[in-house]
Structure formats: structure tokens, C-alpha cells
Amino acid sequence: MKVDLRVRRFNPEKDQKPWWGEYTLEKVRATDTVLDLLHRIKWEQDGTLTLRRSCAHGVCGSDALRINGANMLACKTLVTRLTKDNNYARIQVEPILGMQIIKDLVVDMEPFFDHYRSVMPYFVNDNPLPANGRERLQSQEDRARFDDTTKCILCAACTSSCPSFWANEKYIGPAAIVQAHRFIFDTRDEAFEERLEVVGDTFGVWRCRTNFNCSNACPREIEVTRAIAEVKMALTTGKI
């Protein structure tokens, strides 16, 4: 099929302001991904088009982009998902919102990772290890409690789709809360109180207005809003 792409371009080395690049691709398969299309533009038409990507199958989190107005991973979005027509599609691609643009589709991820690092996203347990030298035991039920939030690939699709984050970039955002959830609800972890203190701060969970953009954006199908609600509940009740 034929695809017309509109891609948001901006190279601060030469451009005064962002502009739209228009590209037409022929012989596109319905099963091609948006990443395939961007690669074809870059490799066949204009090598200056700049984006991040690595794994090409939705597991590394490099290529969260705003595609036809919604956040998704370019490599996990098939052309068929974006058109009802078998012969034609029109696709618009922009960088995710709320972050500084470095070049074209590449944004500055540092503030995002700063928020991530602020929630103590690591396992804490200073108790003596099991005397037999083996693993700590955990029941299947306890393990299941935080399974959903272990899937996060830190792609930022959720945080950059959140109106509260757009309103104030100091808000730690859904991704950081998902990471906090993964540890708060792990029965083996001991930093429960400290971590709750961080996410309960002025720029923490209470900024969430339960708008569900994050859950819809998440390419790993994590129930982000639910994870946030569980953290709010833990803060209110002091229990998990």
C-alpha cells in the first residue's frame, strides 16, 4: 500500500523552529511497523532523520513516539493498526511531549531518569541472608502481587502522555510510581516506609488526576492507573 508520512523535524544546529517533513512510501506491507517506515525514510530518502531505536520488537523502550496523536512504540505499531483502508494510510509522527527536543524525534531523557532514580528504584533488605546460603523464599501469591509492574521498560510513553506531568514537570510521573510500586509490594523489600515518603511528597502520587492516559499508552499493558491507586491506598492506610 501507499503511505504518506508527516514527521516532526527539528535540528537545533540549523532550524529556527520545528517543521513538518512530508514523505511518501510505496509498497508498504500492512504488517510493516512504523519503525520500518521511519527506517525506510532514513535509509532510502533522508539520512538526517534522527530517532532512537534498538531491539525492534517492543522490549527495549527506545522508540516511544507520538503517532497519530497517541503515544506508542514505533516498533510495536503496525500500519494496519492505523488505517482501515487496505491501500492507503496517512501517518503523523512526533516526539513525545513534555520533554526537551534534542533533534527530530529524539528528546532529552535525563529528567525522566532523574525522576526514576528519585524513588529508590532498587531492592533493599539488610537482614541476614538465609543461613543455608540459598534464595529467600517467596510464595507464588506474594510474587504475583507485583508482577505487573516488573514489566516496565522505562519507555516514558506513560509519563509523557500525562496532563499532570505536562502541567508541572516536577511531578515524578507514572513511570516512577510504577517502579516504586514494584518494590513497595515486594514482600522481600524493607524500604517500604522511605519509599512511601518519596512518592507521598508534593510532587508525588497526589498529582495524579486518574486520567488513564498512562494505562492506555503503556506498550507493556501495565495497569498503570491501578498501580498508582494501590500506592495511594498504601499511603492512606499505611498498609499493603
Partner: peptide, 21 residues
Amino acid sequence: DTVIELEHMGLPFDRFPNGKI
């Protein structure tokens, strides 16, 4: 012992009903 060490670092392995990896 490296796999055990990973568990001690918090790696969320799946578990058998007896709680082991």
C-alpha cells in the same frame, strides 16, 4: 551461587509452590 546472588539482589524469579526459584 550467582543465580542465588541475583535473587538476593531482588530479582523477581518465578517461584515453585514451595517458594523456591
